[in-house]
Write a protein that binds this DNA or RNA. Structure first.
Lengths: 289, 289
DNA sequence: ACGATGGATAGGCATAGCCTATGGAACTTC
DNA sequence: GAAGTTCCATAGGCTATGCCTATCCATCGT
């Protein structure tokens, strides 16, 4: 049983004639005739009575007609769904963010995005990088916002912004007057860093390594705001990305001059995943703002 | 968009793999792959994300899946209806009968038939022959029971029974003692006949014609019972078919010996009309009883 | 690094649906 | 009632399409 057979069948019912049905279906009358015959063969009974000039549905045909129409109706609905779904910008997006980006980068962009695309149901998940990568793989998040680079060919990366790193110093620190400093200037200082697992800890440690600096770590936390309070209390110094700088803060922030003292934030997607229009809108919104 | 594409699509969703879906669908993996590709082309978007080893539905695929399933479900329902309808003996039958057959022939057969096939909704229409033929043509009755022969190639006829004609005489008529008589024996008698339009009138008149008899008609009615009452009252004689003979009657019935003094009752159908199992059951029930 | 797995691609083949031409029955018209 | 018209069915040829095998390419696991 094929769809065109059902279409032909319905056309015959509508027009009351094989010839007119063929015309309406843009096929020759014999082709349509054949297909009706074939359909009847498969069903094992006639659908029409051929009465000289006119054709009329059999009892079987009468019961079959609404079924055939239902199939075709469902088919049209399916097609309709697709084209509608293609125009439509909306649906669910789940975005994962690392904790050291989440509170600074996302909020302003989310509000403008959801105002612009009110049909998109946006969910945010805050996790550390390896968890986000796993969730990308399993499909439980669509995009991840995290620090680049990410190794592995299974992901596509879109850099969004690059920011400098800053040293956070207590208000009365001796380096406070400097416009910038080198990491090695901090050689003598006790350090406050993020807990292990946070990628920014690795970024900071890597920068120190390059500066031949092996910091003594006196405090660890999961969030910058804790570190900065402690720094303000004079416990030591820290390294933070630009976006983590607080306006009203007990600390002074001095730019780190080292070339590689930077962090790049990017959007990561599972390679090969198809993107809805909503996904694309979200990505380009992040890139524009 | 074709049915096998939808089937393949659903198979991929169920198995989570093109290869296994191909196996399950009894086609090669490339064939199935092609068809999925083709379907995606037509829809203008991917239905699956191909992620190295595994495949996963896209958003579009997720919305398309229930639609595709609905189409296939409807299709199965249609097929189911057909086979069910073919097993089933039931549904509506409308049978037309001429008035000179209706009260004698049908009642006993109807009760046995409806007892046997309780699912059949039987409707009886009593009309004269030309009306019944018209209603066969228009499809408002399925079968007609009437006197054969019927000319015209547009009908199929199934003879059911042939009966002799009888002369109905008053109780004290001089021919009463005879076992049989010839029509010409009635030459002197006044006749009572059915009204014009009833085919049995034509049957009787034709028989008289063949016997060179031109009867004087003194009474006409639409039913035998009226004629027989009048005959009993001594108004004249009549000709009736065997089935019209009444057990308790004011008349005597004498078999008419003429060769052609017979009537054949048959079932007539519109040639080319397909018959349901219920129709066939009805016809064979008439023939058997 | 290697083989195994899974989907895509290429090329050949057979079938299925379409076409035109024609047949044959029924209805119309003169 | 004979000829023409209008139907649907049949026959035969053509093309397209779906299927096949063989192969490729990427990924994944050992």
């Amino acid at each position: 049983m094929e769809l065109h057979q059902l279409r032909y069948f319905c056309a015959v019912v509508e027009t009351g004639s094989f010839s007119r049905a063929a015309e309406q279906s843009h096929v020759s009358q014999p082709s349509l005739s054949q297909q009706i015959l074939k359909l009847e063969d498969e069903l094992g009974a006639r659908l029409f009575d051929r009465l000289g000039r006119s054709v009329r549905l059999t009892e079987l045909g009468k019961t079959f007609l609404p079924r055939a129409r239902a199939v075709l109706r469902e088919l049209e609905a399916a097609k309709g769904d697709v084209v509608e779904g293609k125009e439509f910008i909306g649906g669910p997006i789940t975005v994962g963010v690392i904790p050291t980006v989440s509170p600074y980068f996302l909020p302003p962009r989310l509000t403008t995005f959801t105002r612009k695309f009110s049909q998109v149901r946006l969910t945010v998940v805050e996790e550390i990088t390896p968890v986000l990568l796993d969730r990308l793989r399993s499909g439980t998040i669509d995009v991840a916002l995290l620090a680049l680079p990410i190794r592995g060919r299974e992901f596509d990366a879109f850099p969004l912004l690059t920011e400098r790193l800053f040293a956070a110093l207590p208000k009365k620190h001796k380096l406070n007057s400097r416009r910038s400093l080198a990491l090695k200037d901090l050689r003598a200082e006790p350090f406050l860093l993020l807990r292990d697992g946070h990628c920014f800890r690795d970024t900071a440690v890597a920068a120190c390594d390059r500066a031949r600096l092996h910091p003594q770590i006196v405090f660890e936390s999961g969030q910058f705001s804790s570190l900065l309070s402690m720094v303000g209390a004079g416990m030591g110094v820290s390294i933070v990305p630009e976006m983590a700088i607080e306006k009203k803060s007990p600390c002074r922030y001095i730019r780190i001059a080292d070339d590689q003292a930077i962090r790049t934030i990017g959007a990561i997607l599972l390679r090969g995943r198809s993107l809805t229009r909503a996904h694309l809108a979200f990505l380009s919104h992040l890139r524009e703002t």
